[in-house]
Design a protein around this nucleic acid. Structure first.
Lengths: 129, 129
DNA sequence: CCTTGATCCTGTAGTGGCTACAGAAGTTAT
DNA sequence: ATAACTTCTGTAGCCACTACAGGATCAAGG
């Protein structure tokens, strides 16, 4: 059993974040030692690591929570996992498209800018109605 | 002079957002009519439209504010505008890269998933230490 | 004139997902 | 014994809005 600092080190999840996950009911409340300190089992730390990976993959915390539950359920509902993941991939692709659109727009806006200009073409463009 | 609803319609900036920009000092406080209602000049509405465009380009609000000030300053500091824009483009590119990395990772994770599986390959992978 | 509905006002709280304190108490190392 | 570390609870801040609540005011129709 490990104190929260050690659990944080082993899982890569910050101390404050671990307590936050507990408050939010994302992970079960850990045991407490006689001095009131949280004590984490290897399984608890496994959960934190799982959540960390989900978050690194960009899943919303609510999804990460769902995936954790699916992972601990009796039957692994592969279909539900895939649905979540595919929905998330679609979101990611949408974001990529949006950012590429932004990138192109920004490049076009700054295309005619150079330091010698009296009036800035980008500002002019932003002012047009 | 226009009431806030009309200013919102003309600028595309939501009513609550307009009041928020005022609270935050992003835009100057508008005149008030005798009944205490905010009254917006065409110039005020122009500012809101300017901010809207900046936000649509993904600039943080603080940058949008800076751009607005640059736009209203005596000399248009094209260099400062470019610096802001280029910094922002770099951020956008970083985000794109990160999202592409996520997309690839998600696809790989779900590659071996299909509905007939007893245990889910993606969950197994997320559980590995 | 009266009602209905739209608009506006202020102030506050919620979103997501942490992160950063403050102030107290306990633990560990020298 | 003292210093330095860790943990505890509780609260507030981040970004950029968004969504109320509860009240005042206004415009249009009957």
């Amino acid at each position: 059993m490990f104190a929260i600092g050690e659990a944080s080190r082993q899982s890569g999840v910050g101390i404050e974040t671990i307590r936050y996950y507990e408050r939010e009911g994302i992970v079960p409340k850990p045991e407490r030692a006689s001095n009131n300190r949280r004590m984490y089992s290897p399984q608890d730390i496994g959960r934190l690591r799982f959540l960390k990976k989900c978050r690194e993959l960009g899943f919303p915390l609510a999804d990460a929570r769902t995936l954790l539950k699916l992972s601990e359920g009796d039957s692994e509902d592969c279909q539900s996992v895939m649905d979540l993941a595919e929905h998330h991939v679609l979101n990611v692709r949408d974001k990529i498209k949006e950012l590429e659109r932004l990138e192109a727009a920004l490049i076009e806006l700054t295309a005619n800018c150079d330091s010698g200009n009296v009036s800035c073409p980008m500002l002019s463009q932003l002012r047009t109605r």
